[in-house]
Amino acid sequence: MSVGRALLGLLENGPRHGYDLKRSYDERFGTDRPLAYGQVYSTLARLLRNGFVEVESEPGAGPERKRYAITEAGVADVASWLAQPEKPEPYLQSTLYTKVVLALLTGNDATTVLDTQRAEHLRLMRELTRRKETGDLADQLVCDHALFHLEADLRWLELTAARVQQLAAHVRP
């Protein structure tokens, strides 16, 4: 899911070969889990099917020499994905991180991405807080557990927001 958006985002800087895309992705997002070739090509095939990318073939070349370029539909898809907050759930960081980096790469406002997410987190926290007040002790404990996790995410969001400038310099040297 997010791999597709990540590849689309990388393509916003210009058409690339599949192998290039894999290398860029690994550099930025795949620090411990490099992307397999197969996954790159199957994802690109899906994006091609949805009309988010198109292929610029170089004459006399095999599949390795195919260059992929993002379509207007692809750009719009990335933008709407960035604007939509993730459903707050544990271990969101990798997705959120991808979003922030992509926003920076694609010239979207990374801070807005973070603020939107923060608002979504708070919305859920409000709900949990309200449920806690009306519920019994078991409910309260369950809600508190979720609240503490969400709070941890929120702190991460805040920290990231404070470091967006630093990150931008790193992502777009």
Partner: peptide, 16 residues
């Protein structure tokens, strides 16, 4: 600056 305290609100505004 605490999210769990802010969760008692109806609405939030971020000052930056």
């Amino acid at each position: 600056h605490e999210a769990r305290v802010a969760a008692y609100s109806d609405r939030e505004a971020v000052v930056r």
